[in-house]
Amino acid sequence: MRIKAEKISAAVAQLCIEANRMLPDDVCAALAKAAETEESPVGRQMLSSLMENARIARTEQMPICQDTGMAVVFVELGQELKVEGDLYEAINAGVAKGYTDGYLRKSVVRHPLDRVNTGDNTPAIVHLRLVPGNKMRITVAPKGFGSENMGGLAMLKPAQGRKGVVDFVTSVVEAAGANPCPPIIVGVGLGGTMEYATYLAKRALLREVGTPAANPLDRELEIELEREINKLGIGPQGFGGTVTTFAVHVESYPTHIAGLPVAVNINCHAARHKEIVLEGEEE
């Protein structure tokens, strides 16, 4: 089976536009639930504004947030599928088209120090994984930097254990305060190596809001973290309240006998991600 680069570009362009305009149903449901449980009147007012914002974005084809993010693209490529053309170029062409045609903000600079805008929001961040089969799953997750800047990583000692993880994650959220536009979704990557823990934390943000982790140890950690974070009192927009996070998602991986890496990746309420499965053609 084969797939043409142009088909990939067209799909990515469409995903960039849709992800930025349509707040996913699971997030809309989480907002509505938060509006019922939030104790602060100002907090409830802020949540209702975010729901109104999502409605406007959806019906008037406007981006949910002006920070339409750096495009993070997860690709699961079936190893029996042959890509005709350069996969990375195809993805970037799609990002450029989507961000231009969709009137999305171009927020990428070519070098972190000279900071010249690339003008089309490329390049994307691409996470490629080979999987069995002959299809290709593409997930576009535009990531704003108000929340991205507030993440953190710690290489804990194994002896610090679960308490160390809870204390670190909670301290990251506490320090972030109002900056990442709470209520937030907290992605936690546990284990692996330094860079793999951060990747896991990012991938955790793709999970449907509030879906429990499969591993019971991870699930227990999610429950404890959600409780501790919501005790902070930061609340919607940081104006005080009982809903600081909608959900904590933990993803774990085996690690080294000497290490306990933990990474935190924060997402604002605009947990944007949209996916498509592309099929190949007969060769």
Binding site: A57, M62, P63, I64, Q66, A178, Q237, C268
Partner: peptide, 13 residues
Amino acid sequence: FGAIGGAGALIAK
């Protein structure tokens, strides 16, 4: 002043 973070479509109005 704080404007509502994440409400860009609403504020544009």
